[in-house]
């Protein structure tokens, strides 16, 4: 019997209207305990309204070697970025 508990990654929504953000990791025997542990470890100063946990080995990540093909294409598509558009200073709420 393998005794060490698997690693989980923890994501917290700090308040309504915000994305869940990765805050750290922990170990837990299963998903339910992982949520409980996340509550105890990462929100003990009341800093969250919602918790996601996911087993670290269930995450598929891009490899750093693939950085160019994955991320380079958008690098030249400056029109995707809001700062590309010049807004006159007197237009409110932009």
């Amino acid at each position: 019997m393998k005794r060490d508990w698997p690693l989980y990654e923890v994501f917290i929504r700090g308040k309504r209207g915000l994305n869940h953000v990765h805050v750290g990791s922990l170990h837990a025997p299963d998903d339910a305990f992982a949520v409980a542990h996340a509550r105890d470890v990462y929100t003990r100063r009341n800093e969250g309204v919602s918790i996601w946990v996911v087993r670290a080995d269930a995450i598929t990540a891009s490899s750093p070697d693939e950085k160019d093909p994955l991320f380079a294409p958008s690098g030249d598509k400056v029109y995707r970025h809001p700062t590309f558009y010049e807004i006159p200073a007197d237009v409110p709420h932009m």
Partner: peptide, 11 residues
């Protein structure tokens, strides 16, 4: 038994 439970019990 584990750090996570230490924190829980203290809570």
């Amino acid at each position: 038994p584990e750090l996570e439970e230490d924190i829980a019990l203290a809570n």
